[in-house]
Amino acid sequence: MTADQYPKIYFYRRLVQAKLYIDMHYAENIDLDNISDEACFSKFHFVRQFKNIYRRTPHQYLIFVRMKKAMELLKAGVPVTDACYEVGFESVSTFSGLFRRITGEPPSRYLARHQELRAQMIRSPQTYVPGCFAEKNGWFRD
């Protein structure tokens, strides 16, 4: 069976386009109703099929993407308020509460922990690299 013959190819393409739309526009005020319209599905059918494939409803997936991006920003040292707005949340308290519920710690602590981790990596990179790799490449000789 080739790609053009597999079952429901247009169905898959429409759902994938909707997912990619969320991936690209997560920071904007996305109207998920519009996405189901553009994918040519009824809202109910769209949500059900999206969840079948991605294990999350479109709304849950949007929150997941925003949180994943927020974690990346915090890991890179971006302040909590900036990270919150940059990923599309309009309220820092909503963002912080959700972040805490998902990760188990408030974003400020997550930021501080990763800043310390990053500093530790820079100070002692050998702690994070299996010795055989470092030794083979002579990374810590000088």
């Binding site: 069976m1 080739t2 790609a3 597999y6 079952p7 429901k8 190819i9 898959y12 393409r13 759902l15 994938v16 386009q17 997912k19 990619l20 494939i53 991605y54």
Partner: peptide
């Protein structure tokens, strides 16, 4: 099928399409 379509849309080169 969804993963294949997504990666293809992102420009990933496939040498074999999904096959049972």
């Amino acid at each position: 099928y969804a993963t294949y379509e997504e990666l293809k849309a992102k420009g990933v080169e496939f040498t074999k399409a999904p096959k049972k």
